[in-house]
Simulated scan of single mutants.
Amino acid sequence: MHSDTTAAPPPADAAWHTRLVRADTSAGWDDRRWTSGELAPHFPAGIHPDEVVASWNLEPGAGADVEIRARDERTGWHPWQALAHWGAAGDRRSAPEHSVAAPGGDVPVIDTDILRAAPSDRWDAVQLRVTLHDRPAASTPPLRLAAVSFTAPGASVTRESGAPGAPHALTVPPLSQRAYPARDDLGGGGPGWCSPTSLTMVASAWGVEGLPATPEDTPDGADPRVPGVARAVYDSSYDGTGNWSFNVAVAGEWGLDAVVTRLPSLREAHALTRSGIPLIASISFREGELPGADYATAGHLLVIRGFDARGDVLVADPANPGGEAGLRTYPRDAFDTAWSHSRRTVYLITPSGRALPPAGPAAAW
């Protein structure tokens, strides 16, 4: 569950400009500190991003403080802002305390994992800064990947209809977050573990071995890895397991290439899943708005695993009673509306070095 999504319906023709920009992590080092170059979205003239989500992948055992700053094209760089205290595995991991932009504010704010522009901002670039907690033992710095995903309100578009292409279904082993009881720690236990459950499913689909497991926290018959993954992604200041950046950072520790990005439409999701890449998507909807779902949610993560011949969305949904009940089909337009609440956010997770499909003119990878 991610608290930044909302159940208030977006306009039926909502659209956003999107762009994922990957940084060069081999340059920009000064002892234990890495500073990216200027990361710019290159949106059409007059379009300025109003939200940025950062991603980082560190080698296992590396801890770091992650910062971000944005540049206003008229006034220059804003001050650096703390984005995360990323402890090595088993150590405390926290983002800044949850904050909300004040009306008329003149500085960006960090809302868990999103840097949001002030109303007066006209951003044209951002920078990331990563300061390692310890001097690297190896000659190769432990920061494997860093990226930022930009979004800006876009022009209205006509909602797509019909199938986007050939039907396909990826093999994703279904898991249920409902197998785990509520608890007082780790973001409330199973009811709040949609993100770590989805992350465990995708890691399993990629054949990742050695995921963290905590059998002592696991009910009979449930997968012991989900509580372990929940502990690994837990954000102690947010008090939850749905911090988008933290989830991809943990996947990075498993040797995967993992970023948060936002996609322009379901067509891009189709292109990625057809190439063999399952996606973890952030959705929200009110009761009855997503046919086939037996719940409503202000923020939920699930796995997109393909599309049927009508273009409807095949998912592995962790909010299920167990077993094959997690493999569901959601109607295309209703799913897209639910997904639009997060600006079509996904975790894009692949084995290191795996090629992505060719990107179209609107693609965000």
Rank of each mutant, 00 (worst) to 15 (best):
A54W: 14
T140M: 14
W34V: 05
V53M: 02
A137H: 09
E38F: 07
I110N: 04
A82F: 13
W29R: 03
R22N: 08
R92K: 14
R116F: 08
L128F: 03
R22Y: 13
P96D: 10
A138F: 05
I114V: 12
G37Y: 08
L115P: 00
W80C: 07
W77L: 04
E51F: 05
G28K: 02
V126I: 09
P141R: 11
G46N: 08
V66S: 00
R135W: 15
V130S: 01
G90C: 08
S139Q: 14
P79L: 14
W56F: 12
H48S: 08
W86Q: 05
A70M: 04
W123L: 03
H48T: 06
V53E: 05
E73V: 12
L39C: 10
D50M: 07
A23M: 03
S94M: 02
R129V: 02
D134T: 13
N57G: 09
A89M: 10
A102K: 15
G90M: 13
E51Y: 10
R135N: 07
W77V: 09
P103A: 06
A118N: 05
W56M: 00
A84D: 12
D124A: 08
D91T: 10
S36W: 10
A84F: 12
A117K: 04
E67F: 11
T35E: 14
V52E: 11
A62Y: 15
E38Y: 13
P119F: 04
A117G: 00
D91Y: 13
S120V: 11
P79N: 14
V109M: 06
D50S: 10
S55W: 13
A89T: 14
N57L: 11
A64D: 02
L39W: 15
R71V: 01
R32E: 14
R135G: 00
W77G: 03
D30N: 08
E67R: 12
R69A: 06
R32K: 12
P108W: 09
R93Y: 07
R33H: 09
T75R: 12
P103T: 11
W29L: 00
I47N: 03
A45K: 13
E67Q: 15
A64F: 01
A117N: 02
V53K: 05
R69N: 05
P141V: 01
V53G: 00
R71D: 11
G61P: 03
A125E: 11
A117D: 02
R93K: 12
D134G: 03
E51P: 00
G61M: 03
L115H: 03
V126S: 02
R92C: 02
I47W: 04
P136W: 15
P103C: 07
R33F: 12
D111Q: 13
T112G: 00
D111F: 02
W77E: 12
G63I: 00
R92M: 09
S120I: 06
Q127F: 09
L83E: 07
A138C: 00
